[in-house]
């Protein structure tokens, strides 16, 4: 194994995130088996479905690059969804909903950041527990029944298009570009890369490790609340089911995109294509009639294989 991996060409190849390859394979599969699906309108609808996931991934990749993880997105999603659809806030303009969502994100992010950065709690346990707590409270408030409808204009905006691109997808693209610029042009991005590479060395080089970890958790949760707004717009009706799928898919897409616990080979666009893979994968599986449990198995296999891919390539260093 060592001799093969020492090959410089392979060394270079192994640093390319698997997302690009998987995306190409899925696209070709779809092209060959279902050519009728390959047009802008149909694809737009498929990709629009994963826009919330794509936005969530932008936060996930931040925390995963500082060797942390955020599974509290599910809780944020549920709270924002409930607050909008239950009518608990009364008749308020859209800006109030947006302010509410952002403050929910901020609050959850602060809690996560404090627990992970200051108290050094295992990030998986901390953020998972936050999700469990938020879910329990929301289910209690809704007494187990789904709340009411979303305000209509949310769905109206969701259904618009900018030229041929659906608005949610355009919004997702815009945020991705912003995040890419943020990480490459700002000192914060350098801090994140340094901590990912080696937290101890970063600490002794004067990087504010704790503050950066807390800040990335806050940013991740605020981004999750934006994803929650887009998600709420897409569903039209509120839901209170515990959906760990979204944050887990976000982790999977991020790993697939080449960002894993400290390593940021994929930048921002690797995970972007990781999400696109998920869009295509679910289309392919649905068109082949794979049942729900099968999709779950595929989800697990993707995470495991992607993690093995990176585990092997980093053990050879």
């Amino acid at each position: 194994m060592g001799a093969i991996a020492a090959n410089p060409v392979l060394q270079r190849a192994i640093r390319v995130p698997p997302a690009y390859l998987v995306f190409a394979v899925l696209l070709i599969t779809l092209w060959v088996t279902k050519p009728q699906l390959m047009n802008v309108n149909v694809m737009g609808i498929f990709i629009r479905q994963v826009a919330p996931l794509g936005i969530l991934v932008l936060g996930q990749l931040l925390v995963m690059r500082v060797r942390s993880i955020d599974l509290s997105g599910a809780g944020v999603l549920l709270v924002v969804n409930y607050m909008i659809s239950s009518g608990i806030m009364g008749d308020v303009p859209a800006i109030a909903y947006i302010a509410m969502a952002l403050s929910v994100g901020l609050a959850v992010g602060l809690v996560n950041g404090y627990l992970v950065g200051r108290r050094r709690v295992s990030a998986v346990i901390a953020t998972l527990a936050v999700t469990v707590i938020l879910t329990g409270i929301i289910q209690f408030l809704a007494s187990g029944k789904p709340p009411g409808d979303m305000p209509g204009y949310f769905n109206d905006i969701y259904n618009t298009k900018i030229w041929i691109v659906p608005t949610p997808v355009a919004f997702w693209l815009l945020l991705t570009v912003l995040m890419s610029l943020f990480l490459s042009r700002f000192v914060f991005g350098r801090f994140i890369a340094a901590i990912g590479e080696n937290p101890t060395a970063s600490h002794f080089s004067g990087v504010p490790v704790e503050r950066t970890v807390i800040a990335s958790h806050i940013l991740a949760s605020v981004i999750a609340s934006v994803a929650a707004l887009v998600q709420s717009a897409s569903v039209a009706v509120g839901s209170i089911r515990l959906g760990l799928e979204m944050p887990i898919d976000a982790v999977a897409a991020t790993i697939l995109g080449g960002v894993i616990f400290g390593r940021g080979d994929g930048g921002v666009w690797g995970p972007f294509f990781g999400v696109m893979c998920f869009a295509l994968l679910f289309v392919v599986m649905t068109s082949f009639g794979v049942p729900d449990p099968g999709k779950q198995i595929a989800r697990g296999l993707i995470i495991l294989l992607a993690a093995i891919f990176y585990g092997l390539s980093s053990s050879e260093k």
Partner: peptide
């Protein structure tokens, strides 16, 4: 294969 325990067992859980 050098996979983090939480990631490994979480994905196995789904499978």
């Amino acid at each position: 294969l050098n996979v983090h325990p939480i990631i490994a067992t979480l994905s196995v859980q789904f499978i």
